[in-house]
Amino acid sequence: MLQNNLVIQVNGLEKQYQMGDNVVHALCAVTFTVQRGEFIALMGPSGSGKSTLMHLLGCLDTPTAGDYRLNGRLVSQLSQRERAVVRNREIGFVFQTFNLLPRLTALENVLLPLLYSGRISAGRARSQSEQALTRVGLTERIHHKPTEMSGGQRQRVAIARALVNDPALILADEPTGNLDSRTGETIMALLGELNDDDRTIILVTHDPDVAAAAERTLHMKDGQIT
């Protein structure tokens, strides 16, 4: 296996929180790797540490100990400022509650990561965003605001936003949790298609039916991968 084909290398990752007098071990020596193009489901009951792991993988937080390499680069001890850059360029988030900005149109929401990256012109950012929206099957309603869209459409906008910067990793946290089962299936199908385009996806869920769509499932319990 080629080293540079590994998107994620996690080695002995630990996270501890101070809760009053107690130290909570949210993650205990987690070690795993993910190859480019893998579709992984991360499962486990609440309190198992899967949210903590996702925050670390998403560079929203730093581990207490251990190494995390994303695309070959050590990102586990980056500063806040550097993590923002990694989130912007290497990671796309899809949330259960969509987390679109209500005052912005679909297109403006998708533009957001490109605006913060500041690396491309306004014209190119716009065409790239339109492409991402087309990729998720939204070409008509790109000038509508989230409140004028259905739940499935909103999640498609969110997925387009996660795609637009061409990230190394898409992190989806219960992406179907707020959708009815039929809409959920179409979203899972969309994620499947993206995976077929060789995109690396980690899906956090507690629904075994949803997890079944992934190629590999990591089960978590008590802060460890079992």
Partner: peptide, 16 residues
């Protein structure tokens, strides 16, 4: 707050 969180998640720096 949530808007701020979203902006940070997609790469907003503190100075932004």
């Amino acid at each position: 707050t949530r808007e701020i969180g979203v902006r940070m998640a997609v790469g907003a720096q503190q100075r932004d």
